[in-house]
Design a protein around this nucleic acid. Structure first.
Lengths: 330, 330
DNA sequence: ATGAAAGCGCTAACAC
DNA sequence: GTGTTAGCGCTTTCAT
């Protein structure tokens, strides 16, 4: 277990060259005379030498690692972001360091600060407001945000949240619904945008939106909220949920309450997580291209690392996915 | 962006002490005289000093990072493993380095070798056989395997796969089923164990098991395999799937084929992923405590790092979760 | 094309 | 308690 690995000096000695030569060889920095190259090759093979990335990083100041903080890896949306980011990282020979902050806002800052020291750049998903996020700029590392920031000069990636819920509201309107509720997650920074999208659409039709809060972005929270929404004084005919997880839980509980979806109630989510398709009934939702978001965020960061500055916001376009959880108002 | 951070020497100068003193202070190694401590504190605060973990690691030989390789983060089973592992890592002030090998066996070895150099220990989930895995021992790092190995002296965690499918077969038998098929994933090392469990149970009842292969551990693969299984010459009344994802896809496609689950066909999975509960119908499965597996794997590794050797295999006990996708044979 | 030497930022003896 | 010093394994001028 403790057979300590050979150092560059061991290789130099074995090959009868200097450490500088070995270093250059390892980095493919230049060409070598045939005999030297042969001896180098042999010595490295022989000793099983692999250069120590830590020592290397200390000098070059680059780690070839990228940090990614997410709120909850259990959420398939974030899983897909990770998937996409990882794919691009791998392709460029970067390693992904994942930190799941577990929706724990207090731990966020120290966690990010510690992570920042071990990576060349960071992709961040956070619930912090812009004003709480100023210290990010002092990290001295390239960043990409997984949400839009109006005031921070940090590149970001996201979708048009307003449009996403606008589309859902329009879809429900087209189906003849008039009593539409929104079941949100107030702690999410994008919740307001999603409310606004749905509300705008309804107001154009002279209708109002009833807003509820699920307190968590999870299926369990959706289940919990269902009776409050459906058995309260203003029973809706259609519910737009903050995300698919909440929608999935909501639908399940609605079934328990004896409410038929979609005959008596239409339900929609946002995210297009892979399991909405297998739910009962299959969930109508808006695809937000989570995996592509991860890919682009990583690509932007890698570009930034390569010196291509970019402080813009890239917005993916939402796409409505109509399945079986929405139907004409009965 | 490029404001380079202060070094230990800057702090030493600012506080009028030696670098050694600063180092000791940072590591909380001992007590200090009041004036020195005060100046240290002030200087550190003033400069915003944070010690460079790379330089530190190079000397101590410890990185406080743990590597985790998984086959596919999209699979909720692995997601849960990551979740559990991350929780324990955080608790012990370790960072998790995640590598998703994307089921790509060729890339596995170089990826793991590279990862090994940046961490104190590794948790591995792999499709490699024991004989292909010998080189792992040369990594010189503590390891934990997410599967049992008979021949490698490496601690591991897993579940009793034989028992898992044995229980499912028994459950189906109890419901009166006689024509039972297994839809597996041959590339998984544990597939054979799962086949064996189901087969043993059936053989005790004088029955045989029809075995099919889904070629991938995904919902999509389950969908694809469905017609082959259900419309072939030996149509089963119950299907035990390798995992929940395959089962979810299988159920969906069965519905498309006009086959009613569970009236005409019982379907089961393995893993108890969070979305089986929201499927149509809710999926009968076996809970394998994925999150606990991740927790225990990480705990074992951290124990090993602390010098507590342990080369044993820890086996979690499967638990049958009966939902709505299984019913008495009609 | 190759090598000598000076560090990167820090810790770990060992002095005082 | 506090300081001095010698590296950790590597890259990088700058000679040759």
């Amino acid at each position: 277990m403790k057979k300590l690995s050979p150092t560059i000096r061991d290789v130099a000695a074995a090959a009868g060259v200097s450490v500088a030569t070995v270093s250059k060889y390892m980095n493919g920095a230049q060409r070598f005379s045939a005999p030297v190259e042969a001896r180098l090759k042999a010595a490295i093979e022989e000793l099983g030498y692999r250069s120590n990335p830590l020592a290397r990083s200390m000098i070059t100041g680059r780690t070839r690692a990228i940090g990614l903080t997410i709120l909850d890896i259990s959420n398939p949306h974030f899983t897909n972001v990770v998937k996409g980011a990882n794919r691009i990282a791998l392709r460029h020979d970067y390693t992904l360091l994942l930190v799941d902050t577990d929706e724990n806002q207090a731990r966020e800052r120290p966690l990010i600060e510690a992570l920042a020291q071990r990576v060349d750049g960071l992709i961040l998903s956070s619930r912090m407001s812009d004003s709480e996020s100023k210290w990010l700029l002092d990290l001295g590392k390239p960043l990409v945000l997984l949400r839009h920031s109006d005031t921070l000069p940090i590149p970001s990636v996201g979708i048009d949240n307003r449009l996403a819920t606008y589309m859902l509201a329009r879809h429900l309107l087209n189906l003849g619904h008039r009593q539409i509720a929104y079941l949100g997650f107030g702690q999410a920074r994008i919740n307001d945008e999603r409310i606004r999208g749905a509300r705008e659409c309804l107001e154009e039709a002279g209708l109002t939106l009833d807003v509820y809060d699920a307190h968590a972005p999870t299926a369990h929270a959706g289940e919990h909220a269902c009776s409050r929404v459906m058995l309260g004084p203003r029973r809706p005919h259609a519910v737009i949920c903050y995300n698919d997880l909440i929608a999935l839980g909501f639908m399940k509980e609605a079934a328990s309450l004896g409410i038929k979806v979609p005959q008596e109630l239409s339900v929609t989510g946002v995210d297009n997580v892979p399991y909405g398709e297998y739910a009962a009934p299959a969930l109508t939702t808006v695809d937000i291209q989570s995996e592509k978001m991860g890919e682009l965020a990583m690509q932007k960061l890698i570009d930034a690392l390569a010196g291509h500055a970019d402080t813009g916001h890239s917005m993916f376009e939402p796409r409505l996915i109509v399945r079986e959880s929405t139907a004409a108002c009965g």
